[in-house]
């Protein structure tokens, strides 16, 4: 069994050799599936997701989801592959965790996409998780952003997301004072051991549009965790932006030719 997060104080190195403020390698591709209206493939470390977007399309008869008349409804379907985790596990339709992720993603994008442009229609975001190693929700949000851009659905700005956590530590000079060591972009092992949150921001600023935390943490620690998370989102945005621009350039070139 390898070491755990308790050695952080010794080395200031995390379980995978990163420093506290380093992201994992992010690799993203856009327009990966020709058949879909929009699609993307995203890796954050060993977390790998595929996202496809179909729509805006006419409302399907009897489709679930809050389809309002004057706005397009956003339906999110998350599928976690049985082989994606350490243990092979089949998740049913009614899995609460998946339902919550779907709701979070749907509500995040319903405020960013210009849904009023597509009355009486639905936009379906389908996310397949191929491999999980932490920061799952963040990866889904990032992949969905790319796929929606690929689908050409107008939106006010990118939603980018990442996770942050905290390791408790104590000051050497004043033992009564507690310090916090925030960590950026947690992997699966760290998520098991530490309190963490997923933060998503809109655009390059510091407007937080998603913030999900399911672990307990002292309220004093929250501020530095959020700050680090928002900072990480900025880095993620630059990476995603570069992917989109590269794709845009290629599209333009092909049109010109």
């Amino acid at each position: 069994m390898p070491l755990d997060t308790s050695i952080y104080a010794l080395s200031h190195l995390r379980l995978d050799g990163r420093r506290w403020n380093e992201l994992r390698r992010i690799h993203a591709q856009i327009s990966t599936q020709a058949a879909a209206d929009g699609s993307s493939y995203l890796e954050m470390g060993n977390t790998k997701v595929i996202c496809t977007v179909s729509g805006p399309a006419e409302v399907r008869r009897g489709a679930a989801g809050g389809v309002q008349d004057e706005k397009a409804g956003i339906i999110v379907e998350v599928g976690i592959a049985g082989f994606s985790g350490i243990e092979r596990k089949k998740r049913g339709r009614g899995d609460k965790r998946i339902a919550e992720m779907q709701a979070t993603i749907s509500s995040a994008f319903s405020s960013t996409l210009f849904t009023h442009l597509y009355p009486r229609s639905t936009i379906t975001i389908t996310i397949s998780i191929l491999s999980q190693d932490g920061s799952l929700l963040a990866a889904c949000l990032n992949a969905a952003t790319l796929a929606l851009i690929d689908a050409g659905i107008p939106m006010s700005d990118y939603i980018v997301s990442c996770t942050s956590g905290a390791i408790p530590s104590y000051s050497r000079t004043d033992p009564d004072k507690e310090l916090v060591d925030p960590l950026l972009d947690l992997n699966g092992q760290e998520e098991l051991e530490l309190p963490w949150l997923t933060v998503g921001t809109l655009g390059a600023g510091e407007r937080i549009s998603v913030c999900v935390m399911e672990t307990k943490v002292r309220v004093e620690r929250l501020e530095s965790m959020l700050a680090v998370g928002v900072d990480g989102c900025k880095q993620v945005r630059e990476i995603l932006d570069a992917v989109v621009r590269r794709r845009g350039k290629r599209v333009l070139e092909s049109v010109v030719r």
């Binding site: 995978d16 050799g17 990163r18 994992r24 470390g45 060993n46 350490i86 190693d133 092992q189």
Partner: peptide, 8 residues
């Protein structure tokens, strides 16, 4: 279980 971890 087979476990894969990244190393930077």
């Amino acid at each position: 279980q087979k476990i894969v971890r990244e190393l930077y």
